[in-house]
Design a protein around this nucleic acid. Structure first.
Lengths: 358, 358
DNA sequence: CGCGCCGACTAGCGCGCTCTAGTCCCGAAC
DNA sequence: GTTCGGGACTAGAGCGCGCTAGTCGGCGCG
């Protein structure tokens, strides 16, 4: 493909191979292999000669051939959704962590035209030894089946399978903290915009209901169907605005959803947090972007990613280890989008006001 | 790694190979190969038998071995930055487009701990035939050198190299449209927060200066050093707020930067667009998130991604084709963040007001 | 001196596939 | 009947490596 037809080293435009390096350094292929794998058995002087020759030729080991011959790829496959900022946070930690343990990372994204199955098959056909799935939506039995074919770790899976490792945040605790925080501030009308069938949202939804119950607010609990997107947040906010009475606080399914809520309320002139409090979930990068800094439940991306890589590698290197679960504690990060409730004057009739502010 | 030691098909826990399928179907390996490559030369009945056997065994061709033997990987390597939403938009188009042309896609992300060289080497060692670089920051000579080793296409490169294909938006035209739009609205004090050394920002900066000149506003042109992040936008906004007089409009280096500006102005009670107009760049997904819908310069992600894949594949399949450049026209999308200038009452002294509103 | 040992190095097989150069058989053409 | 052609299928080399089982030479030791 490139026109280097006359090279002094005999690699006629070909990508140089170990044999070329061996010839140039005056040693055998096996020696070159040793040197490149950093294995003992090569003299220091020879080692240097090999490395220099390789450098001169621009030699680079061929991953495909290496995988084929070694029966190991030392590669972790990561399935992600390109548009989820929280997952981007995770990826940024997975790379160095994998490298530290001597593993490569291959990314495979899901997209509207590319479902999870496709993304996963791509990783497997590239001989990834372990898969790390970020927020997989697949059902438990599918995950289990996958778990039979490879070492699999899921971060925040929608459903928890038993044959794979799971890393997740204790959503019950997180939601509980959020509800406690708002109730402590004096809120009573707390609506939850859930994440539909997205990973984690079922747990958060139930935790919300339980937390409301625990505060004796079970009958006032209300869940609006949503999703983990800005659009869902905007839609929910519009629905709320269409109603006669606004709740005093909204718990969003994730930060992106919270941002959508925030935006529509801002446009409608509903002040956050004066008129309505909003809590997000994730503490992803976007949570700093809101016009009002977002109060949110922080999931520790760094810890989650670290654990996921560790679990995968451990299971790779000790086949007898069973899948396990790591549950991390979330933490409420109180920023500017929550405050004690006040009457939403414009939208409250006086009787309602009496009732609500009573 | 999995305990299927007693399988009836003889693949003792091993991943099944072509030989296993061949044995099960009672044909030769070569035949199985033909069938899986959809090549003529196999009878319809045999073909079905092979496919069934493969299905039964759970056979899946091994990409590594395939690459090794075929000398072709039919794989495009994409280098990206996980945190840039515009790049996520691109990736979502690259996948289906590559698939349509019969190519696979491998993603490799840059991150704080992982520079462009590392990301690219990973792709090359996986035998990617062509690289598509999203917003590479590498300098021209590095890109050219890379262009000698593989077929390379860059989208919005910081510097344009001649040995690689380039796809970019006509930043001159885009910036010109933005400046024209604001000047038409009546603005005279337009500040540009640039993208520092990030891809595309040099062009946008120069285009801004030229456009200001063209309107006879050259002496009022002012560039604030920035970056393509929300943080940079926030910092610049604070700098502007510290000064006695606010400009009437700010052109941000990209949407994320614009979001940062928007946020700080909102917090400071500076109304957008009443007190100050803001224009973004990219029209990425985030541009819909601002409390005020963002006026921005739309880069057509879909077209850019399509062109990039097309160029790469064309050059792969016709080695004589020289690198070329595709420049797409951007389009101003006027939303809510721009309006005719009014006096920023709180921040204008009356004399300044007279001067600025005159 | 002979033996064993160890470090440095090599020969060559095999990983799972592709691909070239075949073989074999059946039917049509002469 | 023979030849030819072509469709269906196979044998076997080789892709670039890793790895096992060696060889070779030097050195310490009895």
């Amino acid at each position: 493909m490139i026109d280097d037809s006359t090279r002094p080293d005999g690699t006629n435009g070909r990508r140089p191979t170990m044999a070329d390096v061996a010839r140039a350094a005056g040693v055998s292929r096996a020696l070159v292999s040793l040197v490149f794998r950093n294995k003992p058995g090569a003299g220091e002087e020879t080692r240097q000669r090999v490395l220099q020759a390789a450098d001169r030729l621009g030699y680079q080991p061929d991953t495909a051939a290496r995988m084929l011959a070694s029966h190991r790829s030392r590669t972790l496959g990561v399935m992600l959704t390109v548009h989820q900022p929280f997952q981007a946070d995770l990826v940024e930690v997975i790379y160095p962590e994998a490298e530290r343990l001597g593993y490569e990372v291959l990314l495979s994204a899901t997209a509207p035209s590319r479902d999870e199955r496709k993304a996963v098959e791509a990783l497997l056909s590239h001989r990834c030894e372990a898969l790390i799935l970020l927020g997989p939506r697949a059902e438990a039995d599918l995950l289990d089946e996958l778990g039979r074919r490879a070492v699999v770790t899921a971060i925040n899976a929608r459903e928890e399978a038993t044959r794979i490792d799971n890393v997740r945040t204790a959503d019950e605790a997180g939601m509980r903290q959020a509800v406690d925080h708002l109730v402590d501030l004096g809120h009573r009308e707390l609506v939850h915009v859930d994440g539909g069938d997205e990973p984690g949202s079922a747990g958060r939804r139930e935790a919300y209901l339980r937390a409301m119950d625990a505060h004796g607010l079970g009958s006032r609990a209300r869940v609006l169907p949503g999703a983990h997107t800005e659009q869902a947040g905007q839609d929910s906010a519009r629905r709320l605005l269409d109603e006669a009475v606004l709740p005093t606080a909204v718990l969003a399914g994730n930060d992106r959803c919270a941002l959508g809520l925030l935006r529509v309320f801002a446009l409608a002139g509903v002040d956050v947090p004066e008129a309505i409090s909003i809590v997000g979930y994730d503490d992803s990068h976007v949570s700093h972007l809101a016009p009002v800094a977002l109060t949110t439940i922080r999931q520790d991306a760094e810890q989650m990613a670290r654990h996921a890589v560790r679990l995968a590698v451990e299971r790779l290197e000790d086949a007898s280890r069973n899948p396990q679960e790591v549950v991390l504690d979330p933490r409420l990060v109180s920023r500017g989008s929550t405050a004690p409730p006040r009457c939403a004057l414009k939208t409250c009739s006086s009787t309602q006001r009496a009732w609500r502010c009573g």
